[in-house]
């Protein structure tokens, strides 16, 4: 699993390479390895469809639906009303309320301080306080 995560991080470090890379294959390989993993989250008891892999110290809000195929890195925050499937979120990420992410990757240390987003097949990077400031690269 770490192998795929490292390769994906290398690819998204060079945004110009994302479109021509094998990122989709790497994601599928990672999700296949997660298989029947479904982590327990004691808190507001969100809904999980396996596989869902949570690293340490992930925070999850109310009315959240994660899965299938979700990896969330350490210290990342998933606030209320979020829905995520087929997506990798790296460490120290903060997304906004009511985000819907499908087949996405969120780079580590990203921080999105706005609400309501519906995004598919994209890499999201950096910091944004408004939807218009969001840096996203399709794949």
């Amino acid at each position: 699993m770490k192998e795929e995560l490292t390769k994906i991080e290398e690819i998204i470090a060079n945004p110009n390479e994302i479109k021509i890379s094998n990122i989709q294959e790497l994601m599928e390989a990672l999700f296949a390895k997660l298989k029947n993993r479904v982590d327990n989250y004691i808190g507001d008891y969100p809904t999980f469809i396996e596989p869902v892999y949570l690293e340490e110290n992930v925070k999850i809000g109310d009315d959240v639906l994660l899965g299938p195929n979700v990896y969330i890195g350490a210290n990342s925050e998933i606030p209320n009303y979020v829905e995520i499937s087929n997506t990798i979120i790296f460490d120290n990420v903060k997304i906004g309320e009511n985000f819907k992410l499908e087949n996405c990757i969120v780079a580590k240390n990203s921080s999105f301080n706005f609400k309501n987003l519906n995004m598919k097949n994209s890499v999201l990077i950096g910091a944004a306080n408004l939807k218009t400031e969001l840096q996203n690269i399709g794949f």
Partner: peptide, 24 residues
């Protein structure tokens, strides 16, 4: 083959849960 859905606080499955699984 099995797939687990943990609903947390929801007391029933709905069609959306099933759709999320079968589309994959």
């Amino acid at each position: 083959e099995t797939i687990q859905i943990n609903t947390g606080r929801e007391c029933a499955l709905n069609a959306y849960h099933i759709h999320q699984i079968i589309k994959n």
